[in-house]
Design a protein around this nucleic acid. Structure first.
Length: 390
DNA sequence: GATCCACGGGAATACACGGATG
DNA sequence: CATCCGTGTATTCCCGTGGATC
């Protein structure tokens, strides 16, 4: 046994005494390469994408399913793999035959949460399909769009763009529709959202719709056990507790993982290495339902994230009204925004569903009765993920 | 010099309440 | 009694500015 192996063994021993080994494995915003238990959904998407294997383009389509059903997980995983294959086959064709063999389409995944503007959208797609790097500043939206069109005109094969989170409050639906409509003919889109097809403009514009159901209880338990085995010390999560979490989460994998994450934090704060029922219950109770995805929260502009980070540490008294909340946040050393701006942020965050405004019962004072804001996302998980990114 | 986009500041508007008015 | 008005807050809306980057 060499020295490295001996050191690794010691490290592993120290590691195994720590409850949380890998936060990423527990995070609801982490998508694994091979989403477990989503076989049928993957098959349906592969059926839809079948033309790609012959170098042809599939029609425009709409994927829908409830929050936490694994839509993003499945689409990101498939698009990443298939685009790898596409790029490989292109280089193979170039070096060997380069005859009439059709070139496979490229597959590009765009998360509208992180790419909400028109400029960012075109830039993301163009950046994915060309070699050279694309500037983020100093060049206009029009020019990026034109360059994308030019590239697609020139290249054979075309592109399929997965447009995820079409229902995000930060995207303007009608503007996005126009944007998708104006894509060139050899670009196809796959919109992904929660709305039922009847109520969704992207479904009516698409030729095909694909539904992804919520997780079944048993499958969700498997997901939890798998993630726990990757992120927690061995044996930290009993099957019965996974069942408890899955029952509470009601098919929503985001919430289930958030609960597991928060429960593990709770356990760790007690200096224990095995989750208890009380840890799990405390974690579930602290997660508001319905809630907004942590992906949505973490994709906000930096200053809004900062404001939320300060907000989760305030006590009830400091949150008694929007004004008081903004003032308390304003005294936070890490924030150099004016109170007025913080206040406006709080209203905007409430508007987009990240926070919720609740009227204050009291109303004894003068003037219009104030309201206060409540969190609509899991606070402990947000706090930890935010701090880890710092 | 151009461009994107997050910020900031503040004006405009909405609302609550008590008291005055017709 | 119904309505209006004044005052004080809360909330929304708009648009110019400036940092970062090319």
């Amino acid at each position: 046994m060499d020295i490295d192996a001996r050191i690794r063994r010691r490290q592993h021993r120290a590691d195994s005494q720590r409850l949380i080994r890998e936060h990423g494995a527990l995070s609801p915003v982490t998508h694994v390469e091979d989403p477990s238990g989503r076989g049928p959904a993957i098959e349906r998407l592969l059926d839809y994408l079948d033309p790609v294997f012959d170098g042809r383009l599939p029609p425009n389509a709409y994927v829908h399913g409830p929050f936490g059903a694994g839509k993003s997980a499945v689409v990101t995983a498939l698009f990443a793999r298939l685009d790898d294959l596409s790029v490989q086959s292109q280089s193979v064709i170039h070096t060997s035959t380069r005859a009439s063999t059709p070139t496979a389409p490229r597959l590009v995944y765009v998360d509208l949460r992180e790419t909400p503007s028109e400029f960012a959208f075109y830039r993301r797609v163009l950046d994915a399909v060309v070699e050279e790097s694309i500037p983020e500043h100093g060049v206009g939206t029009e020019e990026i769009r034109d360059r994308l069109h030019e590239h697609l005109d020139r290249s054979r094969g075309g592109v399929v763009v997965a447009v995820d989170h079409v229902g995000s409050p930060r995207v303007d639906t009608s503007a996005l529709r126009d944007r998708l409509d104006s894509l060139p003919d050899d670009a196809r889109w796959l919109a992904v959202g929660r709305d039922a097809p009847e109520a969704c403009p992207f479904a009516t514009a698409a030729t095909e719709t694909i539904e992804i159901d919520a997780y079944r209880r048993r499958v969700l338990i498997d997901v939890l056990m798998t993630r726990a085995s990757e992120g927690l010390a061995q044996g930290a999560l009993e099957h019965g507790l996974a069942r408890r979490i899955a029952g509470w989460a009601d098919g929503n994998a985001h919430d289930a993982l958030a609960a597991l994450f928060a429960a593990a934090e709770h356990t760790e704060s007690r200096d224990e290495t095995r989750l208890s029922a009380a840890d799990v219950d405390a974690a579930c109770d602290a997660i508001p339902r319905p809630d907004v995805s942590l992906g949505e929260v973490l994709a906000l502009p930096a200053n809004k994230r900062r404001v939320l980070r300060a907000l989760v540490d305030l006590d009830a008294e400091e949150r008694r009204s929007v004004t008081a909340t903004a003032e308390s946040i304003g005294t936070d050393a890490s924030i150099d925004l004016s109170t007025g701006t913080i206040e406006r942020y709080l209203y905007e965050l409430a508007e987009s569903g990240v926070l919720e405004r609740v009227p204050v019962a009291d109303g004894g004072g003068k003037g219009r009765t104030p309201s206060r804001v409540e969190l609509r996302f899991p606070p402990t998980v947000f706090r930890k993920l935010y701090d880890l990114r710092r």
